[in-house]
Design a protein around this nucleic acid. Structure first.
Lengths: 360, 360
DNA sequence: TTGTATGCGTTATCAC
DNA sequence: GTGATAACGCATACAA
């Protein structure tokens, strides 16, 4: 119900690309039109050298009239910069792009994209699967790796080739001390959320952890165990296998004889899984079981929840994305951004609000 | 709590970029290492010309050992292709990236990204705000424009420059007949969802439309009015202003003397707005008011809904994204993808399920 | 103030 | 089979 129009039509000379519409207007066209040399045109347009204001204006006008736009590729070849930042989207080779659906990534990439555009960079999504090799075929100045995993092949490859990298979440392997990192303040955050559960009346707090071999998971677990020690409680940790339905893990945890009366889930999905498992076991939320989760932000909270509004430790994914971009651009500019920590906040909702706080 | 490592160190010669780590290894390094010419190396690696199998293998091995990767920029300069597809993320200049948060875009871009990677392309997000000019500074082979608006400046600019474009949603202005388009089958979809409302017992069906000057909105409204004519009903359409809270528009519609007893909202947000407005007016869903919405997919349905599970006309945003990418790559390959239509399906949930269907 | 010449890393053309 | 060499489009020392 339609046909094409441009495409192909390999006009012009050599390759000239299939970009269609005759030949692209280049700097030499502007030079011809003004009767000047391409050097002068370039200088006039970029504000380099000493150019007569009148000439500059003439060049500007001519360029505008002709609709001249410098070819980004050619410019990139000489400048060594492309203005493109890579964002690694998902690590699991077997589930590529799966994380795209997770609100955390959506918020993170939105924040990153906004920050990038503000600084005149563009963001390109590359798959975490290193086998595709796509990331090496895409011209980019630097890369943002979200939650690098153990022996992360991309991270290793980038380091080897000197590709500037910033990570969201500390690299878990040693040897990456030089890589700037942006992290959520899990130390305070975990203490705050676990403390809240206890204060809200929980006697035994469990952790529904994740299978990912990244610093986020590892840190959360470590901080949790540490908290348990401090609070004189035996740790209760359950972890769904990579391909397992988290509901199964939740059921395991909740059907044990010494089941917890409060559980913190390491992502929103786990919160839903806990709700499902609780209902299936006839447990009431929050009276029999309090639930809290990690969430990507407090933005959508309340409208996203299912059945029970979930208390959350709200990570600021948008800000994390923005900070990563800022840090990466700093690196590209030769500055040292160091590592930064973004605060996260506890948002209390129905899932941890018992009628009588300390009935227990 | 960290420092940098690579960055700057403007080693090598000329610009060489700030990419760090000494100088990048290029094809000439491989040539030197093998004692061959760069031409032979290039041919061996790309499988061009006639190369002795032994030589080819030797080159391959050397390249691998040295960790040689062809520079995408240089390659792009000569080939005229960059392997990058642009995806316009948001149109509203005043609310850039706002649409990023809409599930439709998230699903669309995920589908597009997956399809792009499969075909060895990368996807770059560019802002709809043409003022930034970013899109012209990013090297890309083609562009996907989602829901082009009236007098869309980007669309116009692309057409002028011969940049291959595929749109999700038909361009609303004339003169773009040659632009391949991917659309949801609104014609059947709208008929189906409106028919469902009627069959479910609605006597007067309203439409909560949107302020966007795009084909989607226009088509939905047209199809709705057409349906009204066929069904002997006076159209009831309300549209929130661009900056207005949709709840206000919903309240206007529902507090009118001849208020509808069923309303279809053109996006999920409008559905929530309708729920809020209904509750504020003391109307019960679905008994006093049935609500249905457009949704980006049926994937998350049920876990996303707030208070009332919403009946939806489920658009297949992921597939739409994938089809756009496929079409765009076809154009780049000189084929004509034509325009395609993606079906959408009615998913009935609680918001239109009355206890007694036709009590009215 | 303007122009000439060279390089950026690859691929393609055409000799050898 | 293999190897010089010329584009690709732009930016910049350096000469004029």
């Amino acid at each position: 119900m339609s046909r094409r129009e441009n495409a192909t039509r390999t006009a012009g000379r050599a390759p000239a690309s299939a970009k269609g519409a005759g030949r692209r207007i280049g700097i030499r066209d502007v030079a011809e039109a003004t009767g000047l040399s391409i050097t002068t045109v370039s200088h006039a347009l970029r504000g380099k050298g000493q150019i007569a204001p009148a000439t500059r204006e003439r060049v500007r006008r001519a360029a505008a009239e002709l609709g001249y736009r410098p070819d980004p590729v050619a410019r990139g070849l000489v400048s060594g910069r492309t203005g493109i930042l890579g964002l690694v989207v998902g690590h699991m080779a077997d589930l590529p792009w799966a994380s795209t659906y997770r609100p955390y990534y959506a918020a993170f990439s939105a924040g990153a994209a906004m920050a990038a555009v503000e600084r005149d960079y563009a963001l390109v999504a590359v798959p975490g699967d290193p086998a595709s090799g796509l990331w090496a075929r895409v011209p980019m100045d630097g890369m943002i790796i979200v939650d690098p995993v153990r022996e992360d092949p991309l991270l290793a490859d980038c380091a080897r080739r000197g590709m500037p990298v910033v990570t969201d979440g500390r690299p878990i392997d040693p040897g990456y001390d030089g890589v700037p990192t942006v992290e959520s303040d899990l130390e305070h955050g975990m203490a705050a959320i676990l403390g809240h559960l206890r204060d809200a009346g929980a006697a035994r707090v469990g952790l529904l952890s994740g299978p990912e071999p990244d610093a986020y998971t590892q840190d959360c677990e470590r901080l949790y165990r540490q908290w348990c020690t401090t609070n004189g409680q035996a740790p209760i940790v359950e972890t769904p296998a990579v391909t397992e339905d988290p509901v199964e893990a939740a059921l395991r945890m909740l059907s044990a004889p010494d089941r917890p009366d409060a559980v913190h889930g390491l992502n929103e999905t786990y919160g839903q899984a806990l709700i499902v498992a609780a209902r299936r076991l006839g447990l009431t939320v929050p009276d029999d079981l309090m639930i809290s989760v990690m969430r990507e932000s407090d933005q959508a909270a309340g409208t996203t929840d299912w059945e029970v509004p979930l208390t959350a430790l709200s990570l600021d994914a948008r800000r994390l994305g923005a900070e990563c971009v800022a840090a990466l651009i700093d690196v590209l500019d030769g500055k040292d951004p160091g590592s930064s920590v973004v605060p996260c906040t506890v948002v209390v909702r129905g899932s941890t609000r018992r009628a009588e706080p300390s009935t227990r």
